[in-house]
Design a protein around this nucleic acid. Structure first.
Lengths: 250, 250
DNA sequence: TCCATGAACGACCACCGTTCTATATTGGAA
DNA sequence: TTCCAATATAGAACGGTGGTCGTTCATGGA
């Protein structure tokens, strides 16, 4: 890195102040950068302030606290998720496309699933996403309750699956290699169990460990969508027998 | 509290040493106690050591580190989950019973879902549970891949749902009240959105906010089980068309 | 009785999030 | 142009965290 040379004070125009002011946007952008590069544990207020060349206490004038910062980061990346306008006859495929887009977003931002897993996206982009998601789900003819809950279930599924995938590659950065290592180790372990006591684990050691993340994801997606189109929950066994639409509001 | 009187050294039988030794079991039990009473954030090594009337450094002779301690706590509570032996003709109901038992476990131990969400239960009780779960799922006639993944999907679902429920009651202890408060606030907010821009959110404000945790859980359970019995994923659209059993191992 | 072993422990280390207070900077009014 | 009030900035400090290290000490075996 070249040595920093102080700028002579006489050539420094009035405009374009060299001291870029701290703004919430700049903080959130930088936070996302650290997250992508170094993960959630590295994203401390101090590390963030250092990146912004300021003191860590200064951040609190713009973001409230760390948790709120994570809210903002989450809402920011939500802009990357594409939720299609409904087209007739392509409902199931469009739902899958939406979930795949959400998954791509998670996989392209390290540890974001850890942030999202216990957060309800109520920022502006989150609300927009909910609206568009509901629009798509209802286009499939789902009754209100199922549309309302289906969106939750799908996004929870995608988040949890991304979380599992990223937590398997814990600690250091490793792409496919370490994941394969782990799968191999686990496979060996399961195969080594006493077959008399663990017949199913021994028998299924292959399928359990050979499912890669992509296959797991597609499989889960199909299961949930199949369950949704089956109109599950029409009659539940806890007393409520009728399937009529729930009253519009509580 | 009565004053502590030192025991005279002459009456102290050889057996039953009054100084209860630190063991891993005692540590894990105590950790679970703190977890139940005060939550995960309160479960620090120092707090735990204090409860055991010792120094926090002493714990590391028995548990490795905090993460491993949480592994052990997780495995311990897994003993509370009941996984039924398969009975003919009751498959779907038995799967539900298993999931409900798992959920009861989560709800009776504060913050346990937060511990479980990114952990693969590979302790002794976890392995036992996996075996019994696979045994039950396969009794339903699920093909290998679906049985192997179905268990994962179900447990992920139960955990995520428990996590959502417990994170809604964040911070202070609140049973139904605060949850209802939050739902009411959210309902009001959704209803207040501009209907032209957010027609679906406004229309579904009722169903979205009126679903209580129990109903959400049962609904999700039915969706997933319906998807499983539909044998989803027989033909997937990523090139693989045949549904033949995957090779026994990789 | 002596000693080796391993558990227990206090002092540290390098951090963390957050708050308080003092200072610097700035835009606008006089 | 000068001055002031409002605001942004940042340093110090607080009370915590998980984890390590070297030392002390009690206990069981020889």
């Amino acid at each position: 890195m070249p040595q920093e040379i102080p700028v002579p004070p006489w050539r420094r125009p009035k405009k374009a102040p060299p001291r870029m002011p701290l703004t919430q946007d700049r903080i959130v952008d930088t936070a996302l950068g650290i997250l992508d590069a170094e993960g959630l544990d590295a994203l401390s207020m101090r590390r963030l302030a250092q990146e912004l060349k300021t003191g860590h206490a200064s951040l609190y004038a713009h973001v409230g606290n760390r948790d709120e910062l994570l809210d903002l980061v989450f809402d920011l990346v939500l802009t990357e998720v594409e939720i299609p306008e409904p087209e007739p006859g392509r409902w199931a495929e469009q739902v899958k496309e939406m979930c795949r887009s959400l998954r791509r977003m998670f996989l392209s931002h390290r540890d974001l699933a850890r942030i999202a897993i216990d957060r309800i996206p109520l920022g502006p982009n989150g609300i927009m996403g909910m609206e568009r998601t509901l629009n798509l789900l209802r286009a499939g003819g789902l009754r209100d309750e199922l549309a309302a809950y289906g969106g939750d279930l799908l996004s929870t599924f995608v988040t949890a699956e991304a979380l599992e995938q990223s937590s398997r590659h814990s600690g250091a950065e490793q792409n496919r290699e370490q994941a394969g290592m782990f799968a191999d180790q686990l496979h060996g372990y399961l195969k080594s169990l006493p077959a008399a006591q663990f017949p199913n684990l021994v028998h299924l050691a292959g399928p359990i460990t050979s499912l890669d993340s992509d296959r797991r994801f597609e499989l889960g997606l199909e299961i949930i969508i199949a369950g949704l189109v089956a109109g599950a929950g029409d009659g539940v066994d806890d007393g409520v027998r009728t399937a009529g639409p729930t009253p519009a509001e509580s």
